[in-house]
Measured scan of single mutants.
Amino acid sequence: MGFKLLSKLLVYLTASIMAIASPLAFSVDSSGEYPTVSEIPVGEVRLYQIADGVWSHIATQSFDGAVYPSNGLIVRDGDELLLIDTAWGAKNTAALLAEIEKQIGLPVTRAVSTHFHDDRVGGVDVLRAAGVATYASPSTRRLAEVEGNEIPTHSLEGLSSSGDAVRFGPVELFYPGAAHSTDNLIVYVPSASVLYGGCAIYELSRTSAGNVADADLAEWPTSIERIQQHYPEAQFVIPGHGLPGGLDLLKHTTNVVKAHTNRSVVE
Rank of each mutant, 00 (worst) to 15 (best):
E99T: 03
D164E: 06
G131Q: 10
V257G: 06
R141F: 08
L195A: 08
N92M: 04
D125Y: 07
A215S: 12
I186S: 05
V67I: 04
Q229I: 04
G177W: 00
W220T: 03
S7N: 02
A66K: 10
L204H: 14
V37L: 08
R206G: 06
H260D: 05
R141Y: 15
P41W: 08
L13E: 13
A94M: 08
A215Q: 11
E225A: 07
L24Q: 08
D164W: 06
S137L: 10
R76P: 10
L250I: 05
L97M: 07
T60G: 10
V124G: 04
A259S: 08
D183R: 00
T93R: 00
A25T: 08
P232F: 02
N262H: 05
G198L: 00
H154P: 02
S155K: 04
N92I: 08
A51H: 03
V237F: 03
N71Q: 07
I74H: 00
D248W: 08
I224P: 00
H115W: 00
G163M: 03
V237E: 01
N255V: 13
K251V: 06
V194K: 01
A234I: 02
V42L: 13
F168P: 00
W88K: 01
K102L: 12
A200P: 05
P221L: 13
E267C: 14
H260K: 03
I84K: 01
L249E: 03
H230I: 15
L106P: 04
E101F: 12
D119R: 01
S181N: 01
D183V: 00
N262K: 04
E33I: 07
R141H: 03
G210I: 13
G177S: 01
K258W: 14
T134N: 06
G148Q: 12
E44S: 10
G246A: 12
I20A: 13
A165T: 13
T93M: 13
G197R: 00
N184V: 02
S31I: 02
A192G: 08
N262I: 07
K4M: 03
F63C: 09
E99N: 03
S38A: 11
G43T: 05
V112Q: 01
F168S: 09
K8R: 09
A179W: 01
G123V: 00
I20M: 10
G105V: 13
W88M: 11
L143D: 05
A111D: 03
S62H: 11
